[in-house]
């Protein structure tokens, strides 16, 4: 079954890679058809299932499951939790996104060291990431739930304000910021459409479709990965997983997406 859907994906890819001598307008139509064809079977489901298994499996030195992990709506409540993240957690005394909170729960409930919990945050062929699977499971439990991130305390207000500054921070040899690609309507890089993340509609479209299964990588990628890889292309140094800047930037983008129904894990080229 898995083999068949992968083979089908490859066939679809090949079909759309060949006729690139078409005029641009029809090439874009073809890409749109390809994107729609992808929606039929999303391998993200495999990550979701594995993540649910990991969530319910006793692991770590304390041989505990994650079922008592408090994602903000009380211990064990997963449904709708992602649509309200990031949020300030009193027990940790800081603003956390989902990935930060998962690491926190792996440390506090399962007794892992932080280094162990973060050992393999981005999977590769033959090296599956537990965090990516857990993120797939938790986010899938917010599908269809309207984004509702609240700036109802000083820490969240500050995270949002600093996240906005980070979004516009130009640096590195190329002078790039997030805004270089994501602050105007209707722009493309090569043939890839770019959401305008400074406007509600663009932020909603961009934020609610991550995490995503990336066909080109054969992996499910989290929002932390999305930021990490954007900064790589901005020619910045390496963004540290769950670092304060990554959480602040996520807060800025997630809040801007408020009101839109969460629609991930999605599938992208």
């Amino acid at each position: 079954m898995i083999g068949t859907s992968r083979a089908a994906l490859v066939a679809v890819l090949a079909a759309f890679a060949a006729p690139f001598v078409l005029a641009q307008g029809s090439a874009q139509d073809e890409i749109e058809k390809y994107r729609q064809a992808l929606q039929d079977g999303n391998p993200a489901e495999l990550w979701e299932a594995r993540g649910e298994g990991l969530w319910k499996t006793a692991r770590g030195p304390k041989k505990a499951t994650l079922e008592q992990c408090d994602l903000g709506k009380g211990p064990g409540v997963v449904r709708g939790a992602y649509a309200e993240l990031p949020r300030h957690f009193a027990d940790a005394n800081r603003v956390m996104d989902l990935e930060s909170r998962l690491v926190w729960c792996m440390v506090t409930l399962q007794g892992m060291t932080e280094a162990d919990a973060k050992r393999n945050v981005f999977g590769a062929p033959g090296r599956r990431s537990d965090i990516e699977a857990l993120v797939a499971f938790v986010t899938s439990e917010s599908k269809g739930v309207p984004m509702n991130v609240r700036l109802d305390n000083a820490a969240m207000k500050e995270a949002y304000a600093l996240g906005e500054k980070i979004f516009f921070f130009r640096g590195g040899p190329y002078d790039f910021s997030c805004a270089t690609c994501h602050a105007e309507d209707g722009k493309r890089i090569r043939l890839q459409d770019l959401p305008n993340l400074t406007k509600k509609e663009g932020a909603q479209r961009g934020y609610t479709t991550w995490p995503a299964y990336r066909v080109s990588q054969g992996e499910l990628r989290t929002f932390q990965w999305r930021l990490y890889d954007c900064f790589r292309q901005q020619r910045f140094p390496e963004l540290e997983f769950t670092s304060p800047a990554s959480v602040a930037l996520t807060t800025f983008l997630a809040y801007n997406a408020n009101g839109a129904k969460f629609a991930a894990p999605a599938i992208k080229r």
């Binding site: 640096g171 140094p237 670092s243 990554s246």
Partner: peptide
């Protein structure tokens, strides 16, 4: 504050050193 936060949130990697944030 945001600039200070960024300086604690990245690590050097390959040819991309932290001075790229200056």
């Amino acid at each position: 504050k945001a600039t200070a936060m960024m300086k604690t949130s990245f690590k050097e990697s390959g040819q991309a050193k932290l001075d790229r944030l200056n």
